[in-house]
Amino acid sequence: MKNFLRTLLLLIIFIGFPFKSYTAEKVEYLKTDWTFKGLFGKFDRGSLQRGYQVYTEVCSSCHSMKYLSYRNLAEKGGPEFTEAQAKAIAASFEVTDGPNADGEMFTRPGKLSDKFVKPYENVKAAQAANGGAYPPDMSVLVKARGGGVDYIYSLLQGYEDPPSGITLDDGVYYNKYMYGNKIKMPNQLSDGLVEYADGTEASIEQMSKDVTTFLMWSAEPHLESRHKMGFKAITYLIILTILVYFSMKRIWSRVETEV
């Protein structure tokens, strides 16, 4: 047992080392304390609600969120707006429905069951309106970028004047965290851009943190129940393992072999 564990440990260290250096990013991202990390990580409800506000008022004019429905806003583990609030949010959007009995498409106020309304009809329309660049759908964006939340958080704050020697084409901006440093999205955030309903000061840093938290939730809507269940499952497994260990010792005590 001891030898087995020793070899195993050595192997893990040996394998872990190159793996770590493989995932390590070249740029040092900005760090902040995310409440949703760790064994008991949970979303900060206020941050999620503020993040939703930033998304609707700033991002949603170009970025879609096609996997989210308005009902998700009232679900447990999310921003947890009240159902009445979520209904009001949904109703503030015009949704195209149909065809009706006359074969015509019509618009109506949104319902909880509707998906988030998209800013553009299709990818081509989005590209045409954005100088050929497609603003990616943000539903799973956090999971689709190597640096995850830290990357998005940094990117939003990474706009700078280009260093001398770098010339940028029209509609291209310099961002020190973007891959290749050239990004087609202009800087969106400025201090006090939104007026938070809860009175929090809307600094660039605060808005970046809130909207990134919101994006983490949209990519992993069941993160909280995952963490909760994980803790229970692993605790259960550890207790069971200990019990089985002693049963095993007992059973093997009948033979003269160590186990």
């Binding site: 064994l39 995952r226 269940m229 994980g230 803790f231 499952a233 692993i234 497994l237 550890i238 393992t241």
Partner: peptide
């Protein structure tokens, strides 16, 4: 197997 499952569960949940 139980020891292995603990590692497995850690990956799945965390």
């Amino acid at each position: 197997l139980l020891m292995f499952s603990i590692v497995f569960a850690f990956f799945v949940f965390y």
